[in-house]
Design a protein around this nucleic acid. Structure first.
Lengths: 242, 242, 242, 242
DNA sequence: AATGAATGAGGGTTCATTCAT
DNA sequence: TATGAATGAACCCTCATTCAT
């Protein structure tokens, strides 16, 4: 999906990027040294420079990936969502799914200032475009009645904040599977903006899979480009409280 | 309210801390040099060492402040909140109010790994205690019917994520006043967990003050310790469950 | 003889250590900057950190070397010395020979407080063991009649003091050759403790080589582990007690 | 005896100097900070600058004191010693006595390079003069038969080395009293150079005082300027071995 | 006489980056 | 492709020193 350049240097390039992303997520960009990234790959610092011209380009690549995923998610959600709310929630779902899958974990979005001015400007442009699109979904939802009247900016900030916080506590190897996380997050986001009465939420996401039918795997959905899906909100609401 | 040690070195110590917190929030701990902090105060790097023994202790002090504020907020909310949901939302309100007031901006809670092992262990202990308390509010709320059944862990993570994202986009000098931010956030959080049908939200927090009565200033509440508050919790409760 | 770790990084590591030792001896540990050591090797400060993790480890390595030499000398002297006095004097001879040969100059033993606590404790343990062994030689010598009755502690302190003072005035490139220094020191130490009437001493060590047979090279002795030596000890013993 | 300038600033100046000397002796000049010296006196760093213009002048004053003591000792020994050997040993005795008494401990003579060029040149001049005088005593002794033929340079180096090592192990508060130390050292030095058969040495300096008549207090001698004394060598030799 | 605050220079250390091999 | 060695810039921190009070 994002064959930007990984064919130039084989699969190794992506591996490097994933390790870098993981470390950036875990410790932050500045606290991560090239040495560490290299060591976690079993090679020497200098070897990294065969795949990326410098450390900053690693960060830039992370953001590129993230923004690519963002826009792809946007597009996917536009097709499959049937109203503002569904599109917004789907976007986030697709987005999370891709980042977790491809970059080992959500990419840290909190250190953009570290980018070179050029890359930074580009990121800001893209991010703003992305956020505008998200806000547009909110407005759209308010108009079509699927989203509660609210301040779109704030709503998006809250949702993005929750998203970006994920790498701080979510470990793909933990008890929650990425699919579960994704489904649970979707429920949460839905609650934040839905105009409908609050749906009951799963008491423990760790048990979600055993709750009747398993939650639609948004990850595979995002990747396999399945056919239109109704979105988690509806399904779950159906089995929700009251 | 938190005279931890600022009297030792006069007011200057707090000034240093505020500047440091602002920079840490804006650029991150590792990206902030002592030189920058000093320069923003109009002094030399070395001068900072009169007030703090090293850079890391600045970060530690930020966290101390934050945790002090957290527990004070907890206590305040326990007294004034009338059910789980109110207590949770009040806690966050008080918390945000204090941090913005005292540290110039919310303290960045995402770089705890940078702390010295000792300080880090202490912070983790306190933070866990804080989060446990928040989750207890959620459970309490589920039991008393004020909170929708949900996974408490996830709910808290979402709320904390939204909170910690604030410093990335909120500037106290911007169009939104701290009080407005606080009120709007409270509404959002309320929506995330409330068991009652979502109350209509302000379309644009920037215009909030002009929307009828101004939102109850949670900040001043947190500081003046007023009597039972008429804030958003009440409103929503009016239409809430039970 | 002491391949502690110099094979890890090739010969360069030992070169670094020798330069460091020379500077430490000449100016003292604290007065020697990494910059100076590096400059004297024609490299940059940062290059040193390829071979040693920090400045202190350079000092620690010096001491390690010195203590290794000390214990090797002890062992050699135990085998070749025929009484307490001979063993003591031989120990010092072997010791000086090795340090001058390997570290360019005697290592300065006067700044142990600069070591990290761990290294320092280890050094103190070893040094105490070494000094105890030396004192045991003195006692042994008093018992076997080769050493004049005296306070062993003081005798050893005086000898060690004289030894540690050497780097302050001895330059391997000067008129005295290391062998000459060694032989002359041995004579001196012998006089301090010998029970026999004092043997005549060379008037000027600078002329020693021309005085009949050259003094037995204790250095080569220490290294080649020759059979019973004809060095000064023997001569003096000739006129010694018994 | 050395009223160089201590009357300018009262007794405090000497106190400062003593503390500085003690710290310099214990940790070395560069490892000792003005803060430490001040703290050990219960004042602030800045206060020291009322008595000495800078840190280096403290070191210079130490050396001045030491050299004053050296020359005074020289003069005293010239008057009271009856041959080369006695004069040499007396010099060292007087010297040690004064330094211990006045500066709390022998002054460390190993960091002259730290001095300002001017002071350093002066010190080197004086020190050379002192050492030349000591060597002259040796030669004198060789000529008058009181000193064994030997290399004067080396002999003096050995003796000075032993002397300068003292501050590393001698604590005035320990079991050995300064007088005992002095007497024992004198014996040792005597052995190094004496032409006469080796005198027996006290087995334990700690017991010296109980060995018949107490050893002539060289310290008080040096201070009270008593009448001619026979020197420890003679006395002790009288009761020496064989 | 003494202090607290501030400074500037310098030292140790880290680290991204380069380059010959 | 990968590495070990080396670099230079930047950073944290210390410390002697100054100065207004």
């Amino acid at each position: 999906m994002f064959p930007t350049r990984e064919d130039v240097h084989g699969i190794k390039r992506l591996e490097v990027l994933r390790q870098a992303a993981a470390s950036f997520n875990f410790k932050g960009y500045h606290a991560t040294s090239m040495n560490e990234i290299a060591a976690s790959l079993g090679v020497t610092k200098a070897a990294l420079y065969h795949y990326f011209p410098n450390k900053n380009s690693l960060l830039a690549a992370c953001f590129e990936h993230a923004m690519d995923a963002a826009f792809a998610s946007l597009e996917g959600a536009r097709k499959e969502g049937r109203n503002g709310r569904e599109r917004l929630v789907l976007t986030m779902s697709f987005y999370v799914a891709q980042l977790i899958n491809e970059l080992n974990c959500c990419v840290v979005l909190m250190e953009e200032q570290a980018l070179e001015p050029e890359d930074h400007a580009k990121l800001v442009r893209q991010r703003d475009r992305f956020e505008r699109a998200l806000r547009a979904f909110v407005k759209e939802g308010i108009d079509d009645g699927s989203v509660v009247p609210c301040d779109p900016k704030l709503a998006i900030f809250v949702i993005l904040g929750a998203m970006n916080w994920v790498p701080k506590w979510f470990k793909p190897s933990g008890t929650w599977k990425p699919d579960q996380l994704n489904a649970a997050l979707a429920q949460m986001f839905e609650r934040i903006i839905s105009s409908s009465p609050a749906a009951a939420m799963a008491r423990d996401v760790g048990e979600l899979p055993s709750r009747g039918e398993p939650p639609a795997s948004l990850i595979s959905l995002a990747q396999r480009r399945r056919t239109p899906r109704p979105g988690p909100a509806k399904k779950i609401k159906a089995g929700g409280k009251r």
